[in-house]
Amino acid sequence: MTSTESGRPARKATARAQRIATLRSSYQSELADGTGRFFEPRRADCPWCGSTSLRVRLRTTDLLQHKPGSFTLNECRGCGHVFQNPRLTTAGLDFYYRDFYDGLGEQRLGAAFGMRTATYRNRARTVVPFAAVPHSWLDVGTGHGHFCETAHAIFPEASFDGLDLTEGVQLAERLGRVTHGFRGSFPELAPELAGRYDVVSMFHYLEHTADPQKELLAARQALRPGGLLLVEVPDPRCRYARLLGRWWLPWLQPQHLNMMPAPNLRQRLTDLGFTVLLEQHDKPHDAGDLLGACWLLLDALAPREDAPWLPGTPPGRVRRAWRDLLLLTGVPVLLLAALLDHLIAPFAHRAGLSNAYRLLARREAPAASRGDGSP
Rank of each mutant, 00 (worst) to 15 (best):
T150Q: 11
A151F: 03
A151D: 02
H152Y: 08
A153K: 14
A153L: 14
F155W: 08
F155C: 07
F155K: 03
P156C: 10
P156K: 12
A158K: 11
S159Q: 15
S159H: 14
S159C: 13
D161W: 03
L163E: 04
L165D: 01
T166P: 03
T166D: 07
G168Y: 03
V169D: 04
Q170S: 14
L171A: 13
L171E: 11
L171P: 00
A172R: 00
A172T: 05
A172W: 01
E173L: 04
L175G: 05
G176P: 06
G176Q: 10
G176L: 11
R177F: 08
T179S: 14
T179P: 00
T179I: 10
G181T: 06
F182H: 15
F182M: 10
R183E: 10
S185L: 10
F186G: 01
E188N: 13
E188H: 13
L189E: 02
A190V: 06
A190M: 04
P191V: 09
L193M: 12
A194F: 01
G195K: 12
R196S: 13
R196L: 12
R196Y: 05
Y197K: 11
Y197F: 15
V199N: 03
S201A: 14
M202L: 14
M202V: 07
Y205G: 04
E207I: 02
H208A: 07
H208D: 06
H208P: 05
T209S: 08
T209L: 00
A210E: 15
A210Q: 13
P212A: 02
Q213G: 06
Q213E: 14
E215A: 03
L216Y: 04
L216W: 05
L217H: 13
A219W: 05
R220T: 01
A222F: 02
L223Y: 00
R224Q: 14
P225F: 05
P225Q: 12
G226A: 09
G226K: 09
G226P: 04
G226L: 08
G227M: 04
L228A: 09
L229R: 00
L229S: 02
L230C: 09
L230I: 10
V231I: 15
E232W: 01
E232H: 04
V233I: 15
V233P: 01
V233D: 00
V233W: 01
P234C: 09
P234Q: 07
P234Y: 07
P236T: 12
P236L: 07
R237Y: 10
C238Q: 02
C238P: 02
R239V: 04
R239L: 14
R239E: 03
R239C: 05
Y240L: 05
A241K: 03
R242A: 15
R242C: 08
L243A: 15
L243E: 06
W247G: 01
W247V: 08
W248L: 10
W248S: 09
L249E: 11
P250W: 09
P250V: 01
W251K: 00
L252W: 13
L252F: 14
L252I: 07
Q253H: 14
P254M: 04
P254Y: 03
Q255G: 08
Q255K: 13
H256T: 02
L257V: 10
N258Y: 05
N258R: 08
N258T: 12
M259N: 06
M259C: 09
P261W: 03
A262Y: 04
A262W: 01
P263H: 12
L265V: 12
L265P: 02
R266D: 10
R266W: 05
